[in-house]
């Protein structure tokens, strides 16, 4: 039990490192010539990375046989939401300077912003219902709600693919990892039904 606590705490601290580095770089003027663009990129990429790591816990459990991977899944999921929220806040507040007509226009007219926004709105109820009380209260509805995370992965892939100017290498790598994690579940599901 004590070891699990140490494990969770370590993951918690690890998840704070990108934020810490960002703050450090910000204070020492290391966020490139265009700091807002850099913050947007960093918060976005870390939200995506943590989303993939969150989805990696089930395959890790199955492949390693160590069940405790699942114990950090909620923590990772909440950090995903945390960085996604920082990402959204940076865009709305620092980038477009709370220009709400612009915000609405972006959501309607720009597909990569549309899917990004939808992804965040799907994660919001998941974050709210991630505590024990809500798990109990929602009962059998909890699992279907949290399965929407698969949708979030697909939306995140499109968000990344549609925003780059020319070179698709990086978003394609993330998409490949995301799809592999989804594929693992499909195979697993198929396997479970058979047996």
């Amino acid at each position: 039990m004590k070891n699990i606590f140490v494990f969770k705490l370590s993951v918690f601290i690890l998840c704070l490192i990108p934020l810490g580095l960002g703050l450090w770089d910000g204070m020492s003027h290391q966020l490139t010539a265009d700091p807002i663009e850099e913050i947007l990129h960093r918060t976005g990429i870390w939200a995506f990375r943590l989303l993939l790591v969150t989805l990696l816990m089930t395959p890790l459990k199955v492949l390693t046989g160590w069940i405790h991977w699942i114990r950090i899944r909620r923590l990772l999921g909440l950090f995903t939401f945390f960085y996604a929220t920082l990402h959204l806040t940076t865009y709305v507040w620092l980038d477009i300077q709370l220009n709400w007509p612009q915000f609405l226009e972006d959501i309607i007219k720009r597909p990569y912003i549309t899917v990004g926004m939808v992804a965040w709105f799907i994660m919001l109820p998941m974050a709210i219902t991630s505590n024990r009380y809500m798990i109990k209260k929602l009962g059998k509805h909890w699992k279907p709600l949290h399965r929407l995370i698969y949708m979030v992965v697909i939306l995140a892939c499109f968000h990344f693919l549609w925003l780059v100017k020319s070179d698709l290498t990086e978003p394609l790598i993330y998409t490949a990892i995301g799809l592999s994690l989804l594929l693992f579940r499909l195979i697993q599901n198929h396997h479970d039904k058979k047996s």
């Binding site: 010539a33 265009d34 700091p35 807002i36 663009e37 620092l94 980038d95 477009i96 300077q97 220009n99 612009q102 226009e105 972006d106 720009r110 597909p111 990569y112 549609w162 925003l163």
Partner: peptide, 17 residues
């Protein structure tokens, strides 16, 4: 894919706000 109405000006007197 993005608006051209405004721009982020990179100058010495940069302010986040």
């Amino acid at each position: 894919r993005w608006s051209q109405k405004t721009e982020r000006r990179i100058t010495g007197s940069f302010s986040f706000f």
